[in-house]
Simulated scan of single mutants.
Amino acid sequence: MQAAIAAMAHVLLVAAPPSSSHTLLATLPNPSSVTRSSSSSSHSPSLHSAFHGVSLKFPSRLNLSLAAVASKKPLTVVAAAKKAVAVLKGTSNVEGVVTLTQEDGGPTTVNVRVTGLTPGPHGFHLHEYGDTTNGCISTGAHFNPNNMTHGAPKDEVRHAGDLGNIVANANGVAEATIVDNQISLDGPNTVVGRAFVVHELEDDLGKGGHELSLTTGNAGGRLACDLLEGPIGVHPVGIEPTNSPIMSWAL
């Protein structure tokens, strides 16, 4: 019985035309005859079976695209704050430290601490040379790039190196913070290659009427300056100076 049923099924499959509703599957179309959907259509091409209402759907070929990786914005170099340190030494027991900091394009902040002074005010200036081959006298005159007469730090007419006075207390310790717009850690008015000097007397700020008032402020002798080889050095904020020749300074 089973053999007879199988034989009948074979006859039906072979004899029936492709369009007959008895056909299990219609002949699959040639791949070249399959019409692809236009680029504007999102439908995938379908292959239909002979079963009414049934279709075999194949996904369209994956459209792989490599998204261009947006190039990173160029690095912007932001000028960091700069710092300079000067260690003050002299032939007497006067010594101290001067620390300078400056944000890009801003004023220079000068923090000074000097010990061993006689109580009272003492002239404090930036001199033009970082040369101490003959002691403090080798540092030359006040730093004066604009060829002005001597004055007070807040005067319009002054030497760039005129930083006024520091005042020592009864213990001989002078501490001061000076914010100045004429000296800088770079550019034409840089402190690099120059020397700070602490003087014996008070600077009269050009107003004392003395013959030296308009040149030195009649501030007297030089108590302390750069007695080591090498000028003031500059390094980035956050990096402390070492004892190497590059990162150690004395004025």
Rank of each mutant, 00 (worst) to 15 (best):
A16P: 03
A15D: 11
H125F: 13
G206V: 08
S42L: 14
G135N: 10
G151R: 00
G96D: 07
N93Q: 13
E156H: 01
V69G: 10
E202R: 00
G161C: 06
N243Q: 08
S71M: 09
E211Y: 01
A16K: 02
H210K: 13
S19P: 04
V14L: 13
A79C: 08
V112S: 07
N171M: 09
K57F: 04
L163C: 06
V167M: 04
L47F: 11
N171E: 15
A79R: 15
G106I: 01
V192H: 00
T177W: 00
G221R: 02
L185S: 05
F51V: 14
T27Q: 13
L205K: 01
G90P: 10
S71D: 14
G90K: 09
R222F: 10
K57D: 13
V198E: 09
L251D: 12
A86T: 06
G164K: 00
D155G: 01
E202S: 02
R113Y: 00
G53V: 01
A86F: 02
P59N: 10
A195T: 15
I5S: 11
F196R: 01
A15W: 03
G193F: 00
F196C: 03
G161A: 06
V237E: 14
G53S: 13
T35Y: 05
H235S: 12
P188Q: 02
L223H: 11
P18A: 14
I232D: 02
A84Y: 01
P236G: 13
T108E: 05
M247H: 07
M247D: 08
H52G: 06
N93E: 12
H43T: 14
M8I: 15
D155T: 00
M8F: 12
S40D: 15
G193V: 01
P119K: 07
P107N: 14
A80M: 12
H122I: 11
V69T: 15
W249S: 12
S46N: 08
A141Y: 09
E156T: 11
V114M: 05
L28W: 11
T149A: 12
G187D: 06
V34M: 11
F196W: 03
G90C: 10
N63G: 08
P45C: 02
